[in-house]
Amino acid sequence: MPRRGLLRAVPAAPAAPEELMAAVADGDLDAFGGLYDRYAAAVHGVATRVLRDPIRAEEVTQEVFLEAWRGADGYRAELGGVRTWLVTIAHRRAIDVVRSVEASRAREDRAGRRELHEVPGPETEVLADAERADVRRCLEGLTPLQLESVRLAYYDGLTYPQVAARLGRPLSTIKTRMADGLARLRDCMEAGA
């Protein structure tokens, strides 16, 4: 038998994410606190990256977790990991906020903002943003057009027609580059795992 009894009490092994979600679905607030502690930085990170506004990012982070609390019973582990689930919800919400804010801006204001957006972010920015070494390495493996298409959509919240206009490429090309860029990223990450 392991000699655990002799060891000083250290934090218990973390519950499996699926178990945490099941407890949250049962209305266990402590489990919900555990879920928050584990994933708040991931959720807040993506919200901040997309919104570039700490207050709005906090609002989105709060909504995502309350949504997870209310909707935990619908989580199905076989449909995906908890982090991916939360980050997916957070990204979509952040993008929706970006678009509704932009849509509500005055016309001239929007024009000014578009000019600001015209300044292309250097590719190194996205590479440096990816904290994990494997993600950075895999992003380097994308073609420049794949990288730019994915970056403008995911980080800047542009729709694919906006990306196509920005890059001066046909819609069909951009749609394809987004899909094959993601597929290449996935293949690279799976190969490195």
Binding site: G80, R83, V87, T88, A130, V150, R186, M189
Partner: peptide, 22 residues
């Protein structure tokens, strides 16, 4: 489902929210 984790990996810029938010 196959592509989602790749997209979610792009979001790997963790940033802790202020404690008051918790």
């Amino acid at each position: 489902a196959d592509l989602r984790p790749a997209a979610a990996a792009l979001a790997d810029t963790p940033l802790s929210p202020p404690p008051a938010l918790r």
